[in-house]
Write a protein that binds this DNA or RNA. Structure first.
Lengths: 112, 112
DNA sequence: TACATATATACGAATATACGCAAATAAATA
DNA sequence: TATTTATTTGCGTATATTCGTATATATGTA
């Protein structure tokens, strides 16, 4: 249960919830998240560090950028994120993030 | 999104998660929860107060006892609890609570 | 090498959280 | 009314969380 409680602690911050929902759609580097979420870089970076520390995301440097990937192996946690995403129309902030994500034209270069 | 984040904040404490999972099965009074969860009464009471303050449970006095009911109208929140319950075998603490709940023989008297 | 860009981190301030213990309140009963 | 049982609450303590700002680190490029 501890891991599940830890997961909920992670989700109990709006910034981290938004990050996880975005990474559910696609891997993103820090500056892409800053732009999409309209948040400062240290703020995003700090929350990503927490997410990485508990293993819910993983990072991969590609040149100048560090890309973050959702890393949920747990089926319960995965289903929780899916439930939120499939009800995104009920959460304006999340919906707006996803909209900016979809409308984004300039992406940092992925190697793979 | 705020309400959802608030919900996760509630779930990010093991005691409250256990309470919600129990109340998902049946309404319970404070002393029944104390016995099932093997926790002190002030501890349970304080967490119930938080849950009531944010509206996730409601209370109803019946004589000497105050019974608490799960009060989740939100479909996303409901589904999250359902997901946890239907995977309870993966969470020993929750499973043990439910087991003690099922084996319980003496109940405080319900009026309705 | 010098500089720009991307990312992480240190630090201090403000705030929140959980807990144990003791005491207060409320209802039931002798 | 006095007592017991059920529940809540006040208080002090320890700890955790978030944020902004400034700075450090790492990589790419001129």
């Amino acid at each position: 249960m501890d891991k599940l409680v830890e997961f909920f602690k992670v989700l109990s911050d709006g910034t981290r919830l938004r990050i996880l929902v975005l990474l559910f759609h696609k891997e993103l580097c820090v500056c892409e998240m800053c732009e999409i979420m309209e948040e400062t870089q240290p703020k995003i970076s700090r929350h990503l560090a927490k997410l990485r520390d508990v293993g819910f995301v993983r990072d991969e440097r590609q040149g100048q950028w560090i890309f973050y990937y959702l890393n949920l192996d747990d089926i319960v946690m995965k289903r929780i994120i899916e439930t939120i995403v499939s009800n995104k129309e009920r959460y304006p902030v999340l919906q707006k993030d996803i909209q900016r994500f979809c409308l984004k034209t300039k992406w940092c270069e992925r190697k793979n």
